[in-house]
Design a protein around this nucleic acid. Structure first.
Length: 570
RNA sequence: GCGCCCAUAGCUCAAUUGGAUAGAGCGUCUGACUUCGGAUCAGAAGGCUGGGGGUUCAACUCCCUCUGGGCGCACCA
């Protein structure tokens, strides 16, 4: 049990005892907030419990705080250096430095598992992200979504949540058709035949290149089609299928280069025509369900879903008057299929242009009786690439843009990931390419990695010089009193599990990135002021070796949660 | 016009989800090791948290309103 959890338990015990002794109402339920005060004078932990109880108990917060203080003092005697009531009714808890020192051993004993927890066990979650149309290379927003999704998966898993990740390939709709038409047109043009790109077709140069590539690899098949009964239709379908396959291949490659893998790549087409034995309910089933539930109606020869029953702005068409289904229809079926596979929670990460889409999908999930909190959408906001202080102009339509693969090649995997994870997901992000390219102290990712490498270097030197590094768990405790820099860094170490837990609960991976930067700062400060290997003070040196080893572990574990490497040398 | 997101130091962003004196990085200025990695550290300057009103012990955080930005508002995806 991590430190704060122990404090919470003590607090809960105190309340339940006071309930009896003070005749507090038995049905009194409070969840104690135990937090780190902003100011160190206010202790290691502090709770606002007394203020929260003031109203239901009709007593002054300070009086309640005094009672809590007395209880805590007697119960956790060996934990505290002091307990005090402060301000309007805070109870501030100062930890005994020996307790803090012991945490170093706990970190080292935990090793890779330090920071992991089990409260998420029993949750079965499907995280869907990127899911870009297979009509062109992945863009920068996809890179951001990939960073966030992958980090979230790692963070949630570390808390015991069973997470699968999935990529949805939109290969059954208009966009895929347009891709096929664009490819076919470009190929025909290359053959000197009359053809023009469709109105909304894809114009990028990669289309022309891809068309050539497909033609080159499939000359026989194409010749057969040309000689067949319906060459145009055959060619369209052929180029569509081959094009999607190729582009999905690009996506897989770019993501693999980025260190992002998915449990499953799911094809939209499988909902339209479920493969034999797949157990997938075709999209019509969902339409029928919604109809049975009374949420559908006919208007203007189309079938509408009354999503306004669930707070959507307007009702949505599911089946168009030409008989085909909208994107939403298949997407609803997809999400139903996610639930059908036993996932109790769905999280989707969407691009900024889809936020208007959230309400209708939530409406559908509610209509189909899935609890409102079982489906959650995160928006990965827009990314502006900056170069020489000015935005990099990009136009997807014209095919002029920097792809995810370009970016990774340019700045590297670790830098790209860290930059994306330095911002909260739903905030716009300015990505400074010049800064990202710099391998200097200005680049924040190196600051954190450098701390790790520096520690590894000291540990290597210690081995070289035959220092004994105390074994995890039973090494000498840090001597007392610890200097302020040591105390500060140990406090940061004890906060790590709390940070990861909060990041998982709130789906905010960026807090881990901020934490790591702060921890690196604490270490660098400690390093500057405190010599680790000092022949004049062997015992203290051993304690400090244990300390930096604990820091190393937390830095590595934290970087790992973000999918970023922890180099031993730089 | 309607809906959602955003507005915090010169710039880019945090703020433990309603907690105590709003914090970092970059930039600017001033400093620091003869020794474990200077990709480092210390200090200074910098703020009416866009404006106004409200809710309460407590508001950057919640509610209302105004201003200024972004994005949506398809029988596209």
């Amino acid at each position: 049990m991590y430190l704060r959890q122990r404090v919470k338990v003590l607090l809960e015990q105190a309340v339940s005892e006071l309930k009896i002794e003070e005749h507090w109402p038995a049905d009194l339920t409070v969840i104690p907030d135990v937090e780190h005060p902003a100011s160190p004078e206010h202790g290691d932990y502090s709770t606002n419990l007394a203020m929260k109880l003031a109203k239901p108990l009709r007593q002054s917060p300070r009086a309640i705080a005094e009672k809590l203080k007395a209880k805590l003092e007697s119960q956790g005697k060996d934990l505290w250096d002091g307990v005090e009531v402060a301000g309007p009714g805070f109870v501030n808890l100062h930890l005994n430095p020996a307790v803090l020192a012991a945490e170093v051993g706990r970190v080292r004993q935990g090793g890779e598992a330090y920071g992991q927890d089990t409260w998420g066990q029993g949750r079965k979650l499907l995280l869907e992200f990127v899911s870009a149309n297979p009509t062109g290379p992945l863009n920068i927003v996809s890179a951001r979504a990939a960073s966030v999704g992958d980090a979230l998966a790692r963070i949630l898993r570390s808390q015991g949540v069973a997470v699968d990740t999935e990529y949805y390939i939109n290969d059954a709709g208009n966009q895929a058709l347009l891709l096929g038409e664009s490819l076919a047109a470009r190929w025909k043009q290359s053959q000197g035949r009359e053809a023009s790109l469709p109105e909304e077709g894809y114009q990028g140069e990669y289309i022309t290149d891809l068309a050539q590539e497909i033609a080159r690899e499939n000359t026989e098949a194409i010749n057969r089609m040309l000689a067949g009964p319906g060459p145009d239709a055959d060619l369209l379908a052929f180029f569509k299928n081959k094009g999607v396959e190729k582009i999905v291949g690009w996506h897989k490659l770019a993501l693999a280069d980025f260190g992002v893998t998915f449990t499953r790549w799911f094809h939209e087409i499988d909902l339209v025509m479920p493969p034999q034995g797949s157990g997938i309910q075709p999209v019509e089933t969902v339409v029928a369900q919604l109809k049975d539930l009374g949420f559908l109606y006919e208007k203007d020869q189309a079938t509408w879903f009354r999503s306004t029953d669930f707070k959507d702005d307007k009702d949505r068409v599911l089946i168009k008057n030409d008989g085909t289904k909208t994107y939403l229809t298949t997407d609803i079926a997809y999400h139903v299929y996610k639930f059908a596979r036993g996932y109790t929670e769905l999280i989707d990460i969407w691009g900024p242009d889809h936020h208007g889409y959230i309400a209708r999908m939530q409406a559908a999930m509610l209509a189909l009786k899935h609890p409102g909190d079982a489906f959650h959408v995160l928006i990965a906001q827009q990314v502006n690439l900056l170069e020489n202080g000015a935005p990099v102009a990009m136009s997807k339509r014209a095919g002029v843009f920097i792809t995810m693969a370009d970016l990774i090649k340019d700045v590297g995997r670790d830098v790209a990931r860290f930059f994306f994870l330095m911002r909260s997901t739903d905030a716009h992000l300015d990505f400074d390419l010049d800064l990202a390219r710099k391998h200097t102290d200005e680049n924040p990712v190196f600051y954190v990695q450098y701390a790790h490498a520096r520690i590894c270097s000291i540990l290597a030197k210690a081995r070289e010089e035959q220092w004994t590094v105390p074994a995890p768990g039973n090494g000498p405790a840090l001597f007392e009193p610890m200097v302020p820099e040591e105390l500060a860094v140990v406090r940061s170490l004890t906060a790590f599990p709390e940070i990861v837990e909060a990041a998982a609960r709130n789906l905010e991976p960026h807090t881990v990135a901020f934490y790591l930067r702060d921890l690196a700062t604490e270490f660098h400060r400690f390093y500057t002021l405190c010599r680790v290997l000092d022949p004049e003070a062997r015992e203290r040196s051993q304690a400090r070796l244990a300390l930096i080893d604990a820091i190393r572990i937390v830095l590595r574990n934290g970087l790992d949660l973000l999918g970023i490497s922890a180099p031993e040398k730089m």
